[in-house]
């Protein structure tokens, strides 16, 4: 019996949770060969798997080594699926400066957000990880960005997010940019507290948020 699209999503998710990089890659190839949508396979398969791995981490079933191996499996699948994502053609390309805040070198979440934003027609400038707050502002001004996206996985670096908003306010340019934030320790309440424009707990949500803030008709 051949796999339905849902079967593929479940198997991709399982491959990530079970740390099977070879399986994630071959399943992804089957997804493409079967003509199923690559974006959906990332969102409902690979990203879903990372989400489940994150829950296992919270529950102290998984630890850093297991999470790393899960992310290896996720990337193995992404490498296959990414070239097959159908890119939305928007009349106007909105620009986003994206990065992980200084002091943090975890970038799984940010990388997922980047891929899904790009596939939704955004132009993404990825600053990478461990980025000082001023650098985000500098780059956003330079390219005339619409959105600044900040990610962190560590509570110790959350202040850096506040610093980005504060720098924008100091320079009197806060109105020019929308600031969106996400990552493990971040909450909608924190976003509100520091004066960010939005929060998302996952990659697909970040895309919806970015579209809403730019006024893109869904």
């Amino acid at each position: 019996m051949s796999n339905t699209e849902n079967d593929f999503h479940q198997k991709l998710s399982d491959a990530v949770v079970n740390m099977e990089d070879a399986a994630a890659a071959s399943l992804s190839q089957e997804v493409v060969a079967s003509g199923f949508d690559a974006y959906e396979a990332i969102d409902k398969g690979l990203a879903k798997g990372m989400e489940r791995a994150g829950v296992l981490f919270e529950e102290e079933e998984y630890f850093i080594p297991e999470l790393l191996m899960c992310s290896d499996a996720m990337y193995a699948g992404l490498d296959v699926l990414k070239p097959h994502i159908k890119t939305d053609e928007q009349a106007q390309k909105y620009k986003i400066v994206l990065g992980v805040i200084e002091g943090d070198t975890h970038d799984i979440g940010k990388n997922l957000v980047k891929i899904m934003l790009e596939s939704s027609g955004f132009e993404v400038v990825d600053l990478g990880r461990d980025i000082p707050p001023a650098k985000f502002v500098e780059k956003a001004v330079e390219i005339g960005a619409d959105i600044i996206g900040l990610s962190t996985l560590m509570t110790t670096t959350m202040d850096g997010m506040r610093a980005v908003v504060d720098i924008l306010k100091e320079k009197n340019i806060k109105e020019k940019f929308k600031v969106i934030i996400g990552g493990g320790p971040i909450s909608p309440a924190f976003a509100k507290k520091i004066g960010a424009d939005g929060y998302s707990g996952n990659a697909a949500g970040a895309v919806r948020l970015a579209r809403d803030l730019c006024g893109v008709v869904q």
Binding site: M19, I64, P65, E66, L68, M69, D72
Partner: peptide
């Protein structure tokens, strides 16, 4: 740190 973490498994 990441490499060592993978090596533990």
């Amino acid at each position: 740190t990441e490499k060592l973490a993978r090596m533990t498994l």
